[in-house]
Design a binder for these strands. Structure first.
Length: 422
RNA sequence: GGAGAGGUGGCAGAGUGGUCGAAUGCGCCUGACUCGAAAUCAGGUGAGCCCGCAAGGGUUCCGGGGGUUCGAAUCCCUCCCUCUCCGCCA
């Protein structure tokens, strides 16, 4: 959510931001609701002031006295009026909130212009894509793939997109998670093991609700939501709290399975491990002082990149353009790993600065040393990393002539051996 | 899952229909005292929103929501959570 004062006082800024994100929002309607809301609020508050004054006066009067009785009669009318106007106000307030929630976050000045994915800027490329294994295959075509990653039985037991990981497949998942968490801990992120179901209030604070409920799995009869990412429980950890400035930046990481219903499917994008309804991911989260959030974004990106470097995987960093930025982000980098078999870039991390967009909605603040007053923190998050696509890239890029997969040195201690056999 | 108790400011803890954003204590901040500190004394010390250039004014918030009433922290309904005991259980 944006600062209502900013919208009110600098609507042109917001208009420009909406245009840069290539979204269409009726800002005039938002401003009109705002004006109406404030007028109604003032009216109700004035009536309440009348009530309170009468209250104090009545407290000093003898209960049964004629003055008292007269006052009661008089205030009955005011009371009825308050009730009526307050009901109207609440309706307007809901509209106002809804309108505010419909406004996207402002892109940062350093975000390039562009309409969509084709306009993203390649910020950096690491590793040699052309030096890929001559034996590379799309991972789902590797002989014996289904023995380690059983999609058929997963579909029988649960549904498409819920594979079983078996033997070295399961062991690889565990090794990657262990590697990620250990590395993230070294970078100063405190490991958290959060709940993987969240309530509606939490899903609302991070923006999954009210618009995207179709993308989450919901439980009955308790109406909890299976987390689409650890970002949701992690960000909500400090919801409605005021942190000490000295505690910032707070850095945490969490592994959770992630559950996504993903309404549409996109042909070859969904083959093999590329796109699943359930997958494993380690998420990095930071709560930072507003003055430092863009430095912190660069550090966050570096922390995620280091993981790919240690895994010796070729990857590139995309700086997302305005049109591909996403609703809530001010600035975002995507990390894409090279799948030598598919000959495609696979997104494995998305590192974003949300500025105060999430923290305003979630009311996460810190007490400013300077002013002594609470201020909103900036929140950042990024994957560190998503397992299945990293796994896919490892399998494809490191496939040997003998059909085995050789693992990078960094992973060997976690996996316990150097080769994966199918 | 069953029975009981309870949710009040940073913490502890009063308040059971009116002048209560809320006593008191602790904590914290400022000042006095001191070479400095402790102790002591005095004062201050919640968050949000609206109006206002500001000074300031108004209003909301006592777990959430709804109701009764001229008026609710206080009465009623409902949901959530915590604690104690019992049951079940990885």
């Amino acid at each position: 959510m944006l600062d209502p004062k900013l919208v009110r006082e600098s609507p042109d800024l917001v208009r420009t931001a909406i245009a840069r994100k290539h979204l269409t929002v009726d800002l005039e309607a938002v401003l009109a609701v705002d004006t109406a809301w404030r007028a109604q609020l003032q009216e109700v508050e004035q009536l309440r002031a009348t009530q309170k004054a009468a209250n104090s006066a009545m407290a000093a009067l003898p209960k049964g006295s004629p003055e008292f009785v007269a006052k009661v009669q008089e205030m009955k009318a005011v009371s009825a009026q308050v009730k009526e106007r307050d009901a109207t106000l609440k309706v307007t307030e809901d509209k106002f909130r809804e309108a505010m929630l419909g406004l996207p976050n402002l892109p940062h000045a350093s975000v390039p212009d562009g309409a969509g994915p084709d306009d993203n800027v390649v910020h950096a490329t690491h590793g040699d894509v052309n030096a890929a294994s001559p034996h590379a295959l799309p991972h789902w075509e590797i002989p014996g793939f289904e023995r380690l990653f059983d999609f058929g039985r997963g579909a029988k037991v649960t549904g498409a997109g819920f594979p079983f990981y078996i033997g070295d497949g399961a062991r690889l998942v565990r090794a990657l998670l262990s590697f990620f968490l250990d590395e993230d801990a070294k970078a100063g992120y405190v490991e958290v093991n959060p709940p993987i179901f969240v309530n509606a209030a939490s899903a609302t604070a991070t923006g999954q609700l009210p618009d995207k409920e179709g993308q989450m799995y919901e439980t009955t009869p308790d109406h909890l939501y299976a987390v689409p990412t650890a970002e949701v429980p992690l960000t909500n950890f400090f919801r409605d709290e005021i942190l000490e400035e000295a505690a910032l930046p707070v850095k945490r990481c969490a592994y959770t399975p992630c559950f996504r219903r993903e309404a549409g499917s996109y042909g070859k994008d969904v083959r093999g491990l590329n796109r699943l309804h359930q997958f494993d991911k380690v998420e990095l989260l930071k709560w930072v002082h507003p003055a430092t959030s863009y430095d912190e974004l660069e550090k966050l990106r570096a922390d995620a990149e280091r993981l790919l470097q240690k895994l010796e995987l070729p990857y590139r960093v995309l700086l997302m353009c305005g049109g591909d930025l996403g609703f809530a982000q001010s600035k975002k980098y995507d990390l894409e790993v090279w799948g030598a078999g598919q000959k495609r870039w696979l997104e494995v991390s998305s590192c974003s600065n949300f500025e105060a967009f999430q923290s305003r909605r979630a009311q996460i603040r810190f007490r400013s040393r300077e002013s002594g007053k609470p201020e909103l923190v900036h929140t950042l998050n990024g994957s560190g990393l998503a397992v299945p696509r990293v796994l896919a890239a490892l399998l494809e890029n490191n496939l040997q002539a003998d059909g085995r997969v050789r693992l990078p040195a960094a992973l060997v201690p976690h996996f316990g051996k150097e080769y994966v056999s199918f």
